[in-house]
Design a protein around this nucleic acid. Structure first.
Lengths: 145, 145
DNA sequence: ATAATTGCAAACAATTTGCATTCAG
DNA sequence: CTGAATGCAAATTGTTTGCAATTAT
């Protein structure tokens, strides 16, 4: 996994360089935080980053996430309520959120394959399976009621 | 459709009464606004309501929407960005949002039938098809690129 | 130098809360 | 009169912006 981080980092550095941008400690910290946390809101990324370098401002987190997203290195998903969660681009999945308990589940994107195809065929709509979650009631909460 | 409004209104009045709550002008206005607008953010409901009665405060809109939702009369959907949209409970549909242009499309809920079944079978998860939208790129924006 | 990046404070938007006032049963 | 409902102002949360100070090339 240290390998992944390295790879991400050098890829990012090159991409930035090509655009006359710089690879800064803050950007590395944000990227590292995302890889470690897998998913996180900007707030959570901020905390994780601050654990290492307490001076980093949350504004920088927002700006960096936006930048990384523009470069296609991270993506964000709206889980329904509150803040969106960011994650490193590679593990794309469908999110299920329980609106009772708030649990978030991840499923392979193939789940949506047939629907994606149908939407493309019939409506010319290209589905982005990971940008918005599906919601409902999870197995646990089902029992409780 | 005037009939619908009447029906909604008296059903609501009774439901409220059963719980020791009152049917107020503000609640009627919010409900009417929702029926007229079909979907609307709290802000939009507020404007619609204020067109008739300018004194109604947006706090009341929020409280009323929450109340009506608790009573199962309205529901809200997260379209991804910004504010959720509320709608009268009856017309349930799947929403598709284009993240390029922001267009919102509605499709019948049957679209998700097979997935809902699969999630229920395999994961015990009861999908609420209308609470979160699907997102992607619409046919129009496809061409533009 | 000079252009990119950051931090900080302030602005903003959406929503919630506390509380005093109003209103219907 | 008593509890429910509203309005208003202030607090919260999530996010963005302007600008001056900092830093890498």
């Amino acid at each position: 996994m240290t390998r992944d981080v390295e790879a991400e980092r050098s890829q990012l550095k090159e991409t930035l360089h090509r655009r006359g941008m710089r690879m800064t400690p803050q950007r590395q910290l944000v990227l590292d935080a995302l890889v470690e946390l897998e998913h996180a809101t900007p707030e959570q990324v901020h905390q994780q980053v601050q654990a290492r370098t307490p001076t980093v401002n949350i504004t920088t987190i927002y700006r960096t996430l936006e930048l990384l997203e523009g470069l296609g290195i991270v993506r964000h998903t709206h889980l329904g309520h509150g803040a969106p969660t960011y994650s490193a681009h590679e593990h794309e999945h469908v999110h299920l959120v329980c609106h009772q308990c708030g649990a978030v589940m991840e499923l392979p994107t193939e789940l949506m394959g047939s629907i994606a195809a149908e939407l493309a065929d019939r409506h010319g709509f290209t589905l982005d399976v990971s940008h918005l979650a599906l919601s409902g009631i999870c197995a646990n909460c089902q029992d409780d009621s």
